[in-house]
Nucleic acid binder design. Structure first.
Lengths: 146, 146
DNA sequence: CATTATTGACAACTCTATTGTCAATAGTTA
DNA sequence: TAACTATTGACAATAGAGTTGTCAATAATG
């Protein structure tokens, strides 16, 4: 546990941070009646993106079926709407409705505040390095690992 | 999605990275027949820690009941064993068995290789900054947020 | 000694996500 | 154009990590 190793710690911290963030996020989303996974889907469509379910799945790097469930739920809630897809007749494009946009703006505003507070003690330069490091790790993981 | 904002991106990357790491970790653990959550518990006991279930839960920041399930499963598998707890008669101390230690060494060896490869393109200085940044975020989240 | 707290065991549930399957219909190619 | 293949949406079953709640037993403590 008490490894001095930075690399190892970063991995461990990622897990911890993920859980802590997820919890926070859930709290914040609760009164809006949407889940973190639904929120993530909305993010891909914000503010005016039009994507089919399989396209969202690809970007989200999550199974098509999972995205479908989230999208259907958001359609039911009136936060998303379907539009004709010129590229595929059976697979409509999904976009935020006005209500959806409104809600996502609310979410974003809340998030911004929380994020600002969260990062208040981290220098901009360190943020950038951290971001690049994490990007590099993700890239390495996705680069056809063996 | 395409925020230039480093802070926001770090949060997003944390999620993505977590999922990618979890997947990798699961793969690596599969043939050993233990789950990531069980592995995490083992980590707290490695190499010679003796902790009660509630103590592990506290360090792991996870519910006592959840840890109990993981510990019971590892006890059944012969990877952990109980020892008398001088501080509490009904709550034994849990420790790795020899088999448990052996298995965890295997896990660690594998991990070390993977981690080394994963971080091969990240400078030591950047690792440190990243680690400190993530630590700072976690601290901020746990610091009796409001 | 009486009271309160802790523990282990069990259950029910949530959330995110996966895999598999199916029928319908779209693209594509011979 | 007809035949074939791929994609899509819908549905189901499953898994993993974790939570909350409850209960009885037993510890610790005033």
């Amino acid at each position: 546990m008490r490894e001095g190793d930075n690399a190892y710690q970063i991995i461990w911290l990622t897990r911890r941070l993920f859980r802590a963030l997820a919890q926070k996020s859930d709290e914040s989303l609760q009164d809006l009646g949407i889940s973190a996974a639904e929120r993530a889907v909305m993010e891909f469509l914000h503010p005016d993106e039009r994507l089919s379910v399989p396209e969202i799945a690809e970007r989200y790097q999550v199974s098509r079926q999972h995205v479908q469930v989230m999208v259907n739920s958001l359609l039911d809630a009136g936060l998303l709407a379907t539009h004709k897809n010129p590229r595929h007749k059976r697979s409509p494009l999904i976009a935020l409705t006005e209500r959806g946009k409104g809600m996502f703006r609310t979410i974003k505003t809340r998030d911004s505040k929380a994020v600002r507070k969260l990062f208040s003690k981290v220098a901009e330069k360190d943020r950038q390095i951290t971001r690049k490091t994490l990007e590099s790790l993700l890239e390495e993981l996705n680069s056809h690992d063996h």
